[in-house]
Design a protein around this nucleic acid. Structure first.
Lengths: 238, 238
DNA sequence: CGGATTTTGTTCCCGCGTTCACAAACTCCT
DNA sequence: AGGAGTTTGTGAACGCGGGAACAAAATCCG
């Protein structure tokens, strides 16, 4: 069904898209998008669900079901047009035009984020780097200067910033978060090891390096003890 | 079967620990651990599941169920002993003594990771920083020198490194991954935007900054269109 | 000492996500 | 044109995780 055209006054019960895509699927769409870009760069024009699934590291059944939430963009017996599907996914995610982003906290990590090409090349535009340390004020990273935290509200309003990245130390994180939210930011990517509480309507995603390592450590310990306690291949559910 | 105790031929479904903890629970244990450390630092000796759950950002029912997989470490009517529970979780995760870690790829991100206090203070010890760029060789970050990639195998063997962190550009990631695995590393934390294929028995966790942003972008777009199309507060499932 | 109160540990139920399996649709070859 | 071979899209079964509700245990107080 063409999303732009039909008058959506009728909430068809058969419609697979009441306006939302399952969260698990949303989390995989960017992976598919990246795989498609890689295929396109290699000059591939068409691919089957099997090929794309392999490139994305998922099984083909899941891939097809995920794509089916977007619509029917494949041709049976043929596969998917790489460029076409790439555009459709980009449109669905909403990264067809660059979204403005601010980064708060330009320590080691913030510095790395500011330089990270993946941001700018994948649908985002960093509009400001903010830090409370007045010593760093004016220092440039790429072509952006580090600006003072007091400019936060003005920048968010002027540039219509909807996404904020928090890369501050933990103690400052929640205060920064509150200011971002008050200023109008409705999506936050949090690198600080803190639980952020936000109002309804604001999305927070957390990236925590030491938590990831600890999860690995747990599995590492399991592997080690399974080996040392029992020589035989104990049934270790992968 | 279990040789100790009564000949219990029946694999009791009531037994909560056949040797494994649900993956979702494992992913939350580090969060509880951090919350407990924070409580201990504030001098709190005892806490209820409600308090700890609030500090960790989960609901108390989930917390209690998670903890029940580890054993019965609480006292009904009282709560949990902060120090005791902290130790039990740390032991379960396997971070009571420091695990050796190598970081490969000392660009902006690798640099940030090398400086990140959360690694060293939370059960890990960075034993080496590796980079293929010979220009950076010998440069020191903290008290560690950057060493050449050719030392990878030797370091992994000598230091019994089980966990590797990949912070290289995408094209180099899989090659580095293969070398780490061949050298004996069985857990990998991957920051490169690449799908890594590894043998059974090796765990990979992926942290992808642009994917996180794209997930936020999707929800951002949904919020925006929900507002512009419909002025009333449409039921947006958070 | 016994009842009221607090808080844990567990059970039950529901919904989401994954996977299998298959019909429908399309191409290609004879 | 028709049949064989591909490949998508989807319906149904299944298992896992989340949340509410409850019983068991421990403390507190009269």
């Amino acid at each position: 069904m063409s999303p732009a055209g039909a008058a959506q006054g009728t909430p068809e019960p058969g419609l697979p898209r009441p306006g939302g895509i399952p969260e698990a699927t949303v989390a995989r769409l960017p992976v598919y998008l990246r795989a498609l870009v890689a295929l396109a760069d290699r000059g591939v024009c068409t691919c089957s669900s099997e090929e794309l699934a392999a490139a994305a590291g998922v099984n083909s059944s899941k891939l097809r079901k995920d794509l089916s939430y977007l619509g029917s963009y494949g041709r049976r017996g043929v596969g998917y047009d790489v460029e076409y599907l790439r555009y459709q996914i980009a449109r669905e995610i909403g990264v067809t035009q660059d979204l403005p982003v601010v980064i708060v906290g330009i320590g080691n990590l913030g510095h790395a984020l500011a330089n990270y090409a993946g941001f700018t090349s994948r649908g985002f535009r960093i509009v400001a780097l903010l830090d409370s340390d007045s010593d760093r004020l004016g220092e440039r990273i790429g072509d952006l200067p580090i600006r003072g935290l007091e400019e936060l509200e003005g920048i968010v309003a002027d540039e219509h910033v909807a996404i904020g990245v928090i890369a501050t130390p933990a103690p400052a994180a929640h205060q920064v978060c509150d200011r971002l939210v008050s200023a109008g930011v409705t999506s936050i990517l949090n690198f600080a090891p803190t639980v952020l509480t936000v109002p309804d309507g604001v999305d927070v995603r957390k990236v925590d390096l030491s938590i990831e390592l600890q999860i690995l450590a747990y599995h590492e310990q399991r592997k080690a003890s399974a080996l040392s306690v029992d020589g035989t291949a104990e049934a270790v559910t992968a």
